[in-house]
Write a protein that binds this DNA or RNA. Structure first.
Lengths: 138, 138
DNA sequence: ATAATTCCTAGAGTTAACTCGAAGTCTAAC
DNA sequence: GTTAGACTTCGAGTTAACTCTAGGAATTAT
C-alpha cells in the first residue's frame, strides 16, 4: 500500500510543499514514482520521514540530515558514522534540556513576579528585588 | 558603572552586531548614550538582555519580545498582559520539554540500534525490528 | 468527454535573525 | 596632534527552511 504526497503531508502534519522541498534537498531519495512521475510513499518511507522529523527536532540542519540519509544508502561501511552521529545528537538534546530547565526557572520566577505584582496592583512591590539572585540561583 | 557594547557582547556571549540589531529592532530602547552617540549599558540593561535571551530560548520571536519591552515601559497598566505572556511562555517551554523527551527516546533507541549493529558488523541483525514499536512506545 | 482536483517541475519570493561593509566619528595613547 | 582601535549609522548581503506561483500533465468524478 502506498500514499500520495498530500496523504503523507496530512499524516505527518506538514505540507506537500515541504515534502517536495525535502525531496529536492535529497532527504528522501528512496521515494518511488509512477511512470508519469508521481511520488508513491511506502510505509517505510514514512518511517524514515519520522526519523527526519526527529532529527529536525534535535536542531539538526537539513544538509546534515542529508548526509545521514546518504550514509544509510551506503550500507554497513557507514555504521560508525551513524552511531557517532546519534551519540552526538543525544548529547545535543541533553544540553538543550538543561538549557530549557534553566529557562524554565527564570520563566517561573517571572510568573510569580507578575502574579504578586498583579495582586498588589503595581510592580513597585518588587522595587527591592534582585533579579541576579534568581538567575544565579542564590 | 557602565559597559561598552563590546564588553556587553562578551559578557552575554553574542556580538556587537547582534546588540546593535536588537537596538534597531526596539528590544533595548532604554540603553543610554553619550552626547556623541555611544551606547552606555547599565547593569540593569544587562539584566534586561538576560531576560531577552531567556525569552529567545523559549522560541519567542523578536517582534513579540519587542511588544513585551513596550509593555514594560508602559508601566502597571500592562501587568496582566505581561503575566499572561509568561504563563504562555511557561506552557510553551513545558511542551518543548515534552517533545524533547519523546525525541530523546527515539535517539536513544537509535544509539542502541547502531551500537548492536556495529558489534555485529552489519545492520542486518535488525532486519526483523519494527521501528513503529518504538515510536508508538510499545 | 469535460470539469475538478491533484500531481509535477523550476524557479522566484518570504521570513527571521543575524552579519557584514563602507564611510565616517570618537577616544585613548603616545 | 596624529594614529590605532572602538564606536557610529545605513543599508546591503547571507542563510535556513520553507512557501508559493506559473504552467503544464495526470487522474478522478460526473
Amino acid at each position: 500500500m502506498t500514499y500520495s504526497i498530500s496523504e503523507v503531508a496530512k499524516k505527518l502534519n506538514l505540507t506537500s510543499y515541504t515534502l517536495r522541498y525535502y525531496d529536492k534537498e535529497g532527504l528522501i531519495p528512496f521515494v518511488e514514482r509512477t511512470p508519469s512521475g508521481i511520488r508513491l510513499f511506502k510505509e517505510s518511507d514514512i518511517d524514515f520521514l519520522k526519523i527526519i522529523q526527529c532529527l529536525k527536532t534535535t536542531g539538526m540542519p537539513i544538509k546534515d540530515i542529508k548526509e545521514f540519509i546518504e550514509w544509510c544508502s551506503d550500507g554497513d561501511s557507514t555504521l560508525q558514522q551513524r552511531y557517532d552521529m546519534f551519540i552526538e545528537r543525544k548529547a545535543s538534546v541533553e544540553a538543550q534540556m538543561e538549557e530549557l530547565k534553566k529557562t524554565m526557572k527564570v520563566i517561573e520566577h517571572k510568573c510569580m513576579y507578575y502574579k504578586t505584582a498583579l495582586e498588589a496592583g503595581t510592580e513597585d512591590i518588587h522595587k527591592n528585588d534582585n533579579i541576579e539572585d534568581f538567575i544565579t540561583n542564590k
